[in-house]
Amino acid sequence: MISARRLVLTALAAAVTLGVAACGSSGGEQQQAAPARTLTISAAASLTDVYNQLKPQFEQAHPGTTVRFNFGGSDTLAQQVVQGVPTDVLATASPKTMQTAQQAGRIEGQPVTYAANSLQIAVAPGNPKQIANLQSLVGPQVTEAICQPTVPCGQATQAAERAAGVTLDPVSQDPDVRTVLQRVTTRNVDAGIVYVTDVKATNGQVQGVDFPQASAQGAGQTYPIGVVAGSQNADLGQQWIQFITGPQGDAALTQAGFQLK
C-alpha cells in the first residue's frame, strides 16, 4: 500500500523533472549487476549543468543506481520538500531556503556548504554600452533586467545595490536568474545581473562585467546540500554529497565558474 503510494509520488516527481533524460538511462543491463535504485535529487536551477555533467560519473561508480533530478527555483524546491515531495537530496542556492526545509524537520543532520557563486553584470559581447559597474546601469539609456527580490539572486542584487548606494531602474524583475540571462542573450535588455556561472554557461553569448559590490555582505551565493529526512536512499544521498564535495565534483564546479567552499 505504502510502496504503491510511493511509486505514484515518485512517478509524479519524475514527471516534474524538467528536461532531464533520466528515464532513458535505466536500462535493463544494469539491473543484473545490483538491485536497481533511484536517487532523486532536488537541485537549484543554477546547478543544472554541473549536476547533469556529474550524473554519468556517479552512476558508473554506483552500478544499478539511476540519478534523477528535479531542478527548480530554491524556494520552490524547499517548499516541495516541506510539503513532503519524495526526494532524497536537497541542494539549494541559499542557506535561507535550506533553513526553510530544516525548520520543518525535513533535513537529516547538518547540511554541507560546498560552493559559492558571485554576481556579474551580463552584457552583449564587446560591451557596446560600455558598462563598467552598477552605477552605469542607472538611467534610461541602459535597460536592465534583474531578479525579483523574493528569490536568492534578487536578494543578492539588492545587497549589492545597497553596498554601491545605487537604486537600479530595471525594466523587468524576473522570477529566476535564467530568465534574466535570456533577456540579455536575446538582446532585449542591455544588461542583466546574474551569476558568474550563468555567464560562463552561455559559451560567449554574453560577456560578464565584474563589479566591486559583488563581494559585499549578502551579495554572494552559497550552496548548501543535505539529505532529506526519511529518505529510503539516505546512504546513496550521502555518497552523492561526498562525490560532489570530492575531486570530481570540485573540478566540475570550478570549471563552471563556482568558487569552492
Binding site: D75, T76, Q148, T150, V151, S172, Q173, D174, P175, R183
Partner: peptide, 23 residues
C-alpha cells in the same frame, strides 16, 4: 512583457512570484 510592478506585473505574475515565498 517581463515582470514589473505597476507596468507589467499582472495578478497571475504576482501570484506566481508570491507562491514562491508567501503562499
Amino acid at each position: 512583457a517581463g515582470n514589473l510592478q505597476g507596468t507589467t506585473q499582472t495578478l497571475p505574475l504576482l501570484i506566481y512570484i508570491q507562491s514562491q515565498n508567501d503562499l
